[in-house]
Amino acid sequence: MEVLKTGSGFWSALIWVAIALGAFLIIWLFSRAFERGYKRGTDQADPFLSGNPPSPGQRVTASDIYWGFVEALKGYYRPLVRAHSGVVNDYLAWAILVGAIVFVLLGGFMR
C-alpha cells in the first residue's frame, strides 16, 4: 500500500480509516449493552442551559459560544478589532509599515 512519507514518519489515510472503522465496530458492539433510557419528547431531549428552565424558542446562538474565551481575552481582542477599522487609509498604513520594515531589513542586512 502506498503511504505518504512526511520526512519524519509516514501517513496512510487508508490505514487510519480501517482502524477508525474497527474502533467504531467495537463501540457499536459495546453500545448494544448500554441502557436504553432515552425518551424522545421528554425533558431528556431539552438542552441543558446552566440549570435554567427552558423557554420556547430559547437556543444557544453563535454569540453565546466561546463567550467566556473572548471575555477572558478582552485585552487582546480590543486592539485587534480596533486595528480592523474598515477604513482603507488604515489598510494602506499597514502596507506602508510592512514595506518600511522589509526595506530596512533587506537593506540593513545586504551582503
Binding site: A83, Y91, G99, F103, G107, M110
Partner: peptide, 29 residues
C-alpha cells in the same frame, strides 16, 4: 547581482505580492 537596486526591487515585489496574497497585516481587504 543583488545590488542595492535589486534589493529595492525585491522588497517591492515581496510587499506587493504579500498584499495580493492577503498576508497579515495586509489582509484587511
Amino acid at each position: 547581482e543583488y545590488s542595492l537596486l535589486d534589493v529595492v526591487a525585491l522588497a517591492l515585489f515581496v510587499l506587493a505580492l504579500a498584499l495580493k496574497a492577503g498576508a497579515v497585516p495586509m489582509h484587511m481587504w
